[in-house]
Each structure stands twice: as C-alpha cells, then as structure tokens.
Design a protein around this nucleic acid. Structure first.
Lengths: 180, 180
DNA sequence: CCTAATAGTAGCGAGTCGAAACTATTGCAA
DNA sequence: TTGCAATAGTTTCGACTCGCTACTATTAGG
C-alpha cells in the first residue's frame, strides 16, 4: 500500500509539472488537452460529449473550452445533417500544430531504455483499464484493436457503424472502441 | 517518439481521471494535493513556497488555497520566531484524515504484480528526475536518502540544518533533500 | 404521438492559474 | 550603519475550470 501511494503521487506530480509548462501562448493545459485529443480522435469521436468523457470532466466545461478555442481559431465546427443535436469539431492547421507539440515530459521519457518504456506503457495501460472498469468509463482505444474492426484491402472496416476506414483512421481513437 | 506520446497521454489521463474523482465534500483536487503533500512533508518544508514548488504552481495560488483550507479547518498556521517572514502549516486531525485517504487509482495499482509495481515506480521516478533536471526543480525526496543525512542512535541527523530527526521524520519529504 | 433519453448550452459560485504589484522582513556589502 | 537587494507571503486581476442545475433542441422508442 505504501508503494501504491507513491505511484499515485508520482503520476499526479508528473502531470502537474507537465501541466505547469503547458501554459504557453493563449492556451491553458485543459485547452491543450482538448486539442491533443482531437488530433488523435476519429471523425466519430469529436463531439463535446466524447471529449468530456475522455478528459473526465463535464459537457458544460468542454462546451466553454470549445467556445474559447473556436474564438481563437484552433478548431472549426461541423454540424451533422443526420443528427442535428451533435456537433463535431475539427482542428484547424493552427490547432493541429499545437496538438503535435511535445513537452519536457517527452524528452525525459525518451531517456529511458526501450524495454523500460514498453513495460511502463503496459503497466500504465493496465492501471487505466482497471480504473475505467471501476467507474464504468470507456477505453477510447484505437480502431485496429477493436472487436468491431475488420481488415480490408485498403485500411479497414467498422462492423458496428458499417463504415470503411482509411489506413490513417485505423490508428485513431474511437469512443465506441472495445478491446479484443 | 510514438510511444512517448502515448505515455505522456496515459500519465495525464490517469491524473485527470484521478482528479475527477477527487472532487468530494468541500475540497477540490488541488486542495487535496496540498493536504497530501503536508502529510508527507517534514517540519522544514511546510511553507506556501515549498508547496508551490512541489505542486508546480505559484505562491499566489497556494496562498489562496491555504486561506480556504484554514477557513475550513483542515490546517493551522505556525509563525516562526526566527524568521518572521515564513509561515508553516500543520494538518489538523480533520486534515490528516483527508491526507490519508486513498482513491480508485490505488485500487487499480494494487492489482498489478509486485515486480511490475517496482518497475513502474522506478521508471516514473527516473522520468521525474529527468524532468526536474530539465527545469531545475527540487526533488523533494525523503531525508533517509539525502546527502545531508546521518544515522543516529535513534532516528537520524541533518548535517545541513544541524537538527536531530525522529525516526518518523527520516521518511518524510524535505525541500532541501539531495539524492545520494 | 407523446414521453423519455440524448446533445449541447447558459449561468452560478468556488477556486485555480499566471502575472504583476504590493508589504514586511532579512541578508549582505560598501 | 545604512541601504539596497533578495526572500516570503499576500492581494488583485482576468481568463478559465469545474460540479451543478436548469434550460432548449432534437431524436428514439413504446
């Protein structure tokens, strides 16, 4: 139990320090996290609701964040013709630049041994999986590791939404993803 | 580089989800983090400045947090006679209860194998160390692993501050700590 | 068809955050 | 000794997050 507390502390401290340096320009850490998510999410997973669930916050907060990001020109709005309730946000090139940015944390991570990195990734993923199981959250994994995914001649196919997927899309986050 | 991004995302997402469930009662995640730090910091390391540096925020914000925590009865104020500028905060029993609380993240961590936990701790510590080296931050390690620490008949002794340390104090966080 | 569920927004109050301006001490050097 | 610079903490500002509740629009299901 002693060790667990330590790890929780480490995770939170690393995230706090990372967030502290994520204050730059006219963006705060949360807005930056929204852009980062948008850059890795597929076209079915870019609504305020999805972002809110991924970031562990509320629709209300995300709605405000998007209002600000929209105003600053980091995202654009797409309203669906099928379901007039939903909104999908897209990164502008300005927003995509931010989403691609790396921070001091990445530099520090890259100093680890390769197998240490893989072990770390496996452990953190396992913790996340357990945490999501506890509170009934979605995994938000990528299409290629989904039970609804089928390989195709080019790219793939989603059997849940009956939609073809381009090669790039198969490695993007989907809110409907369920691990094999 | 692909993997590093993943790990950064994992750390931040875990911290966000942990923070989301840390909203309870009349405390927010930051106030909870302050109490957690105070519960693990020694008597030389409980000032607003130390908390600010540990949490990667500013003295101004921490000042506000303490004002709120003081009002709600989670901490008490101790003014030093030597240096009238400094203030040291102590947890009340109410505050200590909160500091000891564990969350869903700990449950999830405890499901890992023992050696996986040790590996995880080692990797995260290494990342933190590298990150702190990059931005010139302090480690905030415990006395027993400090270059200024000497073992004594009972507890230990700090050669920097020329102060005896009780057994419990040797495993507390110090802002002056420098790793062996 | 009508009610329930879903998606998004608006507003509230408390609080975080960086930044800058401010007060009160303490340290150091000429 | 004086006299500044460094340090510790506070206050205020504006933008924003966050949980919450109330609200509107749209869609789904019995």
């Amino acid at each position: 139990m002693e060790d667990h507390l330590h790890i929780r502390e480490l995770i939170n401290r690393l995230a706090r320090l990372d967030a502290a340096s994520a204050w730059a320009g006219d963006l705060n850490p949360t807005q930056r996290a929204v852009l980062g998510y948008l850059g890795r999410a597929n076209r079915f997973s870019r609504s305020p609701s999805h972002v809110a669930e991924y970031l562990g916050t509320t629709r209300g907060t995300v709605s405000q964040s998007f209002k600000s990001l929209l105003q600053k020109g980091y995202v654009t709005e797409y309203r669906s013709a099928q379901d007039k309730r939903t909104i999908s946000f897209e990164l502008t090139s300005r927003g995509a630049d931010i989403a691609r940015q790396t921070g001091g944390l990445e530099n520090s991570i890259s100093e680890l041994e390769t197998d240490q990195i893989h072990g770390l990734q496996a452990s953190l993923s396992a913790i996340l999986k357990g945490l999501l199981r506890q509170n009934g959250g979605r995994a938000f994994g990528v299409c290629s590791s989904c039970i609804h995914f089928k390989t195709a001649d080019v790219g793939g196919f989603c059997t849940l939404l009956s939609e073809p997927l381009s090669t790039e899309e198969t490695s993007l986050i989907c809110h409907e993803q369920r691990g094999v």
